[in-house]
Amino acid sequence: MKSMYLINATIVLEQSVLQNGFVHIEGEKIKSVGKMVDCPPIIGEIVIDCIDNQYVIPGMIDIHVHGAGGFDFMDSKQEAFEGIAKALAKEGTTSYLATTMTNPISQISDVLKNLASYKENNSETGVAEMIGIHLEGPFINKDQKGAQPEHDILPPNVTLFKEWQKLSRDAIKIITFAPELDVDFELLKELKKMEIIPSMGHTNASYDEAVQAITHGITHSTHLFNGMKGLHHRDPGVVGGALLHDEVYVEVIPDGIHFHPDLLKLVVRMKGLERILVITDGIRAKGMADGIYDLGGQKVTVSDEKCTLTSTGSLAGSIVTMNNARMNLAKWLGLSIQEQLQITSVNQAKRLGLFNRKGSIQAGKDADIVILGMNGEIVFTICRGAIAFQCKDAFK
Rank of each mutant, 00 (worst) to 15 (best):
F71I: 05
Y55H: 08
S168R: 03
D75M: 07
G83S: 11
A213L: 12
V183L: 10
Q148C: 05
H232T: 11
P40F: 10
K145Y: 01
G287A: 09
V250K: 01
F71D: 07
M194E: 13
I63Y: 04
M270Q: 13
A367T: 07
N53L: 13
K119W: 10
L135M: 15
L354S: 05
L295W: 06
N53T: 14
Q78D: 15
E180S: 07
M200W: 05
L341T: 10
H216E: 15
T93Y: 08
H220N: 10
K173P: 02
S318T: 03
I387N: 04
E91V: 13
E180M: 04
E28Q: 15
L18P: 05
D110I: 09
L266P: 03
S32T: 15
I108Y: 07
K392S: 14
G83A: 11
D235E: 09
E28L: 08
Q144K: 15
L315D: 06
D235W: 08
G69C: 07
V370D: 00
T344F: 05
E247P: 06
L160P: 04
I276C: 04
G217K: 04
P261S: 09
W332F: 11
C307P: 03
G21C: 03
L187Y: 03
E186T: 09
A89T: 06
S3D: 14
D281H: 01
K113H: 12
V127T: 14
K142Y: 10
A242K: 00
V302S: 02
N122L: 12
P236W: 07
G132V: 03
T99Y: 03
V211N: 06
K77I: 13
V33M: 05
P138S: 09
F81Y: 13
I51N: 14
M322E: 06
F177P: 01
H64W: 04
G334R: 12
G83D: 04
T321E: 00
K396N: 14
H233V: 10
A330P: 07
A388E: 02
H245D: 13
T381V: 07
H220I: 01
N157D: 14
D393P: 06
E305M: 13
I197E: 01
G296Y: 03
N20F: 10
F259D: 01
D52S: 13
Y96T: 05
V47P: 08
L335R: 10
K113A: 12
G373E: 02
D304I: 05
I196Y: 10
H202E: 01
G92L: 08
H64G: 03
M101V: 04
S336M: 11
Q19T: 14
E251D: 11
I25T: 09
G237R: 00
G353N: 04
S123H: 12
E120Y: 06
N323D: 13
L352K: 09
L264D: 01
K119H: 12
D182P: 02
L188K: 04
D393E: 15
N356A: 12
L273H: 06
T176N: 04
T102S: 09
I7K: 14
A363K: 15
E14L: 13
H223A: 01
M60N: 04
P104G: 08
N157K: 09
I214D: 05
E190H: 10
Y96N: 02
S336E: 13
F71Q: 08
D366P: 05
G126V: 10
M327K: 14
N122K: 12
